[in-house]
Design a protein around this nucleic acid. Sequence first.
DNA 1: TCAACATTTGATCATATGTTCATATATAAT
DNA 2: ATTATATATGAACATATGATCAAATGTTGA
Lengths: 118, 118
Amino acid sequence: MSEQYVRCEVSCVNEDAVTEVRQVMLDEDVAVSLAELFKALGDPTRVKILFALLTRELCVCDLAALIGVTESAVSHQLRLLRAQKLVKFRREGKNVYYSLDDSHIEELFAQGLEHVTE
Amino acid sequence: MSEQYVRCEVSCVNEDAVTEVRQVMLDEDVAVSLAELFKALGDPTRVKILFALLTRELCVCDLAALIGVTESAVSHQLRLLRAQKLVKFRREGKNVYYSLDDSHIEELFAQGLEHVTE
DNA sequence: TCAACATTTGATCATATGTTCATATATAAT
DNA sequence: ATTATATATGAACATATGATCAAATGTTGA
């Protein structure tokens, strides 16, 4: 319990409200994980990559050409998306084909698009 | 069309795949808006604020006490969430009560939680 | 009007982020 | 083996981000 908590406790805080919400509050680590997931979706390049992969698997070079950035930039972002288990890949000769590794992305994008387009 | 696009065009790019995806690709501004929305959800403090507001409206001081950060930090984050039209507020005396201003947050969190907890 | 309180705002600072460039790795073809 | 191609990686750099502090604003009650 931090200093400002104590300070608030004796001033403006509605204790009942805070207690009520605290019962159902997210655990710290879950909040952090959730934020990391959304952060992974929070960049235009990564949004484009994931949206493109909703249609079909693509190799790094395809994605770079489609989105208009260097292969290096795409590769760096794919690494991050891999770390979040949002994409998976398979190697075929010299190419590496990426595809979605998560069933929630479509719904996340659908909900997100509803928000931004209304 | 950028330099690396031309380079790719004569090398590894699968033109058919890229053309196919390009047909249904997000517009630049929509991709940016979507990324901005997810970026707004991409911070633990903001995740906690929004999650708390799923239960009930709370004033700045309540949120600060609940989450364990200063009122100033909460206020700064609320400003950002307001800009994204994710929260709205009403003034009651000296307090300002915040509540959700978007029907998609619950579903976004539900989908996100499924991803991070599996 | 003044004092106290709740919130907001601006400045500052340390850290995180995203791209680029150069280089390394991996595979294929000659 | 050597070369070319596709991807990955690390360093560097400019920019963005999030918290804190101090100060400003707005509201209430004495």
